[in-house]
Each structure stands twice: as C-alpha cells, then as structure tokens.
Design a protein around this nucleic acid. Structure first.
Lengths: 138, 138
DNA sequence: TCCTACAATGGACTTTGTCCAAGTCAATAT
DNA sequence: ATATTGACTTGGACAAAGTCCATTGTAGGA
C-alpha cells in the first residue's frame, strides 16, 4: 500500500491528497469497487473530491498497471488492486460478489492453432459464475 | 433461423413484424451486434421500429436462451445468436472484431475445490484477446 | 369479424462515463 | 521561507447505453 505510493512517486507521480485517498481505498484482497463506490469511500475521508478526479486517477492507475479494470456484468466497471499476480474471477450470479481465484493450468494452451483465425493471442480473461454460499443458504 | 421462429411460436411467442426482423438480423455465424446495431439493421427493413422494442426483444431472446449476451469491452453489450453450441470469444484488441472459438478442455476442471470459496460454480466465460490478421498487417 | 391480452411506441429518465475551461497546489529552485 | 509553474482538481455540461411507463396498436383465437 505505502509500497504502492512509494512506487508511484518513483515513477514521477505527483502525490496529491485526492490520489492518496483513492489509493488507500483500493487496498486489500477481493476488492472490486466501482468508480462510484471508490468515490463514495474517498469522499468519506476527503469530502470535496470530485468524480472526475476519481475517474482520472483510476484511469492512471490502470495505465500504470497498478490496478486492473474488470467488467463482469456489462454495467459499471470495477477496479481490482490485485494486479501483481495473474488471476481470474468468480462471480455470484445472485448478489454479484466477486472473488479472485487462481486456477491451475493456462487456458491459452486450450486454444488450438486451428481455432485462432490468424490472431496473435496474448491474453485470456476467465470469469466463473455460480452461487455463493450466502445466497445458496438464503 | 426459420427454425428459430418456429421454436418461438411453439413456446407461445406472439409473432410480430418487429420480432421477426430482429430475429432475422440475428442470423449467421460470428454475429455479435450491439443493440443499436440491431436496431439500425432492423430499421432498414422496418423503419418505424423503436429502440425500446429492440431492447425488449433482445431481452426476451436472452431469457429464452436463444441468444447470448456478451460484454467484451465494458461498453455496449453484444448479442450472439450462436447459443446452441457452447463456445468462447476471441477479440481483437485493436479493432474489436469478435470470433467464436471452441477450445478443447473444460476450464471448469481447472478450478480446484480449494479455489471455489463454497460457490456452486455452474458456468465459465472465457475471452481471449489478441491482434487479428488484418490489424497485424496494417 | 370482433375482442382482448399482449406488444410496440416514443419520450422522459437513469446510470455510467467523458470532456473542458478555470482555478488550485505540489514540488522544485531560489 | 517564498515564488514559480506546470500538472492536478473541480463542477458542470455533455454523451452513450439502457430502462420505464402511459398510450396506442395488433396477433391470434372465439
């Protein structure tokens, strides 16, 4: 976390109060907040922060490779600070909860050359869907 | 295609001119149109069709399992009539072209029980990303 | 042919996100 | 400690994608 701010400063990132609170909000495992949720939590600490700044900052963090943009539902994009280790997502079809998962095997290997249509394939994104224990109990 | 309309009628679907053109537009392989694109093509044949009707019809076809909703870019959702055979998507990072692919293996098997967090996992969605031959040549 | 329940319409509204001109401030140099 | 300056922030207007609803129209059965 302060590692993150440290890394960013070394990259010449100008450290403002707004950027600091956004970076602080995006801390932890299984964090997948929408831009509006990030804005709400940031505003708890810094009431005058604007939506535009949150969008700008999230965009920069994505460009810098410090967070990952995820869209699991075709609605608001979510931001995942777990950019260090490659992983996939497990989404509850009922409540939308998201967990990071680390499956074995590389799905890229499952795509034979004959199914690549001449593409240079560089990445794969996997979303598992199911029902979480809480929703199953209810 | 007319198979589709036949199936829908058997299910009690009331067949209107609007629904017919929407179903006709969604015909073929590697078709992945946005709602607005479907509306534009439908309007070529039936100028007075409204956007709301296109959205309604697409929603119904999704519920009926006749088409699949895909969101590969966090922007407009796309609609894929290839709902019969399970498949994944190969997306060009530059131009956005989408191809259907049928990889070997079942990615569900790659998710060990220890990574399921108690979820009942029922489905998996895979998006491969890369550069298509046309964009690579340009 | 008539009825009626279901479907279509279009316009208002919501959500999510982008853009911009003007004001503000973090970091450096003095 | 202060001045400077270019990068950062702000708020509001704007745009894209989609939903909602009261009204009007019509498919398919009696």
């Amino acid at each position: 976390m302060s590692d993150l701010l440290e890394r960013l400063r070394e990259r010449g990132w100008r450290l403002t109060a707004q950027r600091r609170v956004v970076a602080e909000v995006l801390n932890g495992d299984h964090v997948h907040l929408t831009a509006d949720e990030v804005h709400a939590r940031a505003a708890d600490r810094l009431p005058e922060i604007s939506r535009a700044t949150v969008y700008n900052t999230l965009g920069e963090l994505v460009s810098l490779g410090e967070i990952i943009e995820v869209s699991t539902d075709g609605r608001a994009k979510r931001y995942d600070p777990n950019a260090h280790r490659p992983h996939h997502h497990l989404v509850c079809s009922r409540c939308g909860t998201i967990r990071d998962v680390h499956p074995g095997g590389n799905p890229l290997d499952d795509l034979p050359a004959g199914e690549r249509f001449g593409f240079t394939v560089s990445d794969v994104e996997v979303t598992y869907r199911g029902v979480c224990p809480e929703c199953a109990a209810a």
